[in-house]
Nucleic acid binder design. Sequence first.
RNA 1: GGCGUUGGUUAAACGGUCGCGGUGCGGGCCCGCAAGGGCACUGCAUCGAGGAAAGUCCGGGCUGCAUAGAGCAAGGUGCCAGAUAACAUCUGGGGGGCGAGAGUCCACGGACAGUGCAACAGAGAACAGUCCGCCAGCGGCUCGUCGCAAGGCGAGUGCGGGCAAGGGUGAAACGGUGCGGUAAGAGCGCACCGCGUCGGUGGCAACACGCGACGGCACGGCAAACCCCACCUGCAGCAAGGCUAAAUAGGGGGAGCAUGGCGCGGCUCGCGUCUUCCCCGGGUUGGCUGCUUGAGGCCGACGGUGACGUCGGUCCCAGAGGAAUGACCGUUCACGACAAAACCCGGCUUAUCGACUGACCCGGGCG
Length: 136
Amino acid sequence: MPGTRFPRHARLLLPREFDAVFQSGRRERGRFFVCVVAAGACARARIGFAVGKKHLPAAHDRNLVKRLARESFRARRERMPAVDLVLSPGREVSRGDRVLLRRDLDALFDRVIAGPIPVSASVRTPTPVGGEESPR
RNA sequence: GGCGUUGGUUAAACGGUCGCGGUGCGGGCCCGCAAGGGCACUGCAUCGAGGAAAGUCCGGGCUGCAUAGAGCAAGGUGCCAGAUAACAUCUGGGGGGCGAGAGUCCACGGACAGUGCAACAGAGAACAGUCCGCCAGCGGCUCGUCGCAAGGCGAGUGCGGGCAAGGGUGAAACGGUGCGGUAAGAGCGCACCGCGUCGGUGGCAACACGCGACGGCACGGCAAACCCCACCUGCAGCAAGGCUAAAUAGGGGGAGCAUGGCGCGGCUCGCGUCUUCCCCGGGUUGGCUGCUUGAGGCCGACGGUGACGUCGGUCCCAGAGGAAUGACCGUUCACGACAAAACCCGGCUUAUCGACUGACCCGGGCG
């Protein structure tokens, strides 16, 4: 599968990018995860992870979840609309094994692909954020 | 043979594809006259979590601040000797407990400096004490008996008296065993054991001794109770600390705007203020650095019982920053535990599926 890359600019890194998604996005819920979907500021889909210690106290469990999510996202980034996503684990996440978690992630991202493309509902967020594509 | 003891190594393996982070050599794009710089673009090569990375319990390095010396307070350590940068760690040794043994466990200085504490039980818990008990010589009292009587004898009482062996209580009760001794007893005497003091011998020392002399012989326990003694410790931590671009709001200084506008004023001077440029200093949000070559790993020689040290050779072995090791396919097996760096080391403690291996102990068989 060539072309299914996951470069750095496909990540949400700054707190204000997360805030923008949380303010304007809609929520897709899976069994183990919640995904906030908002209109993308870039041409391609981007994702950020909000994995706290609340539901996953052990460091290696948080790593595992992020890796599974990254892999699932990477496999279908090409097919995604230009959206920004924030993924969070839910309360049930510690009950799943890696197969179940991966299945849930795949289904969740497929729904993002099939679902409605979020319109940049208000004028406020996308425009200023869109201007930060220049390298710093 | 052992569900014996004690160390060490390892942490599924191999191939392919895709993906992520660092470094090196190229390519591309952007900024710049250039030197050069930047990039969350890209090709190739190469490297990329742990034995505990963990808990953050100790000890150091490093960094900033503080600091004449000494003392006090507070905290820590606590058999001896050594190792080490240092330690609460490690090594060797001593003592004590446990074990048949290999081994293993121990905050293991001081209770004649002082103040305290000891529940319950028990008579009694620290200049001892007598509940049951033992004794029957002596003083009482009662009864019986003998006697003319004084009184004798016997029994009882256990009031006075002697005793601390035995019973009983307790975590702990003021040496143990035996013999003598006695009314009964007791280090009361003796022997042996134990103990104390002084000396001797061995050992660097802790300490040891089937060594000698003296002493009948308690000097009890708790110091993870206060305390005393000896030794150690300045405080904070990589969000330490250093450097710095930019935007916005705004502070200080200087210059300019040909004799400028506005305010105070009747006018001039003057002062304040507005506007432009330059310089300086601080806060916010970022960036860079600190950031990995180190008390370093491996191999060998030598010294040492050992921890470890010295010398030589060789290797470079994560440096992220919302945080890199994963996914898929194939093959194999014992079907894979605990758990992931965040400035770096040395330890301790705790978690852990297994696999391999060294040394030693016990029992049995054969030679």
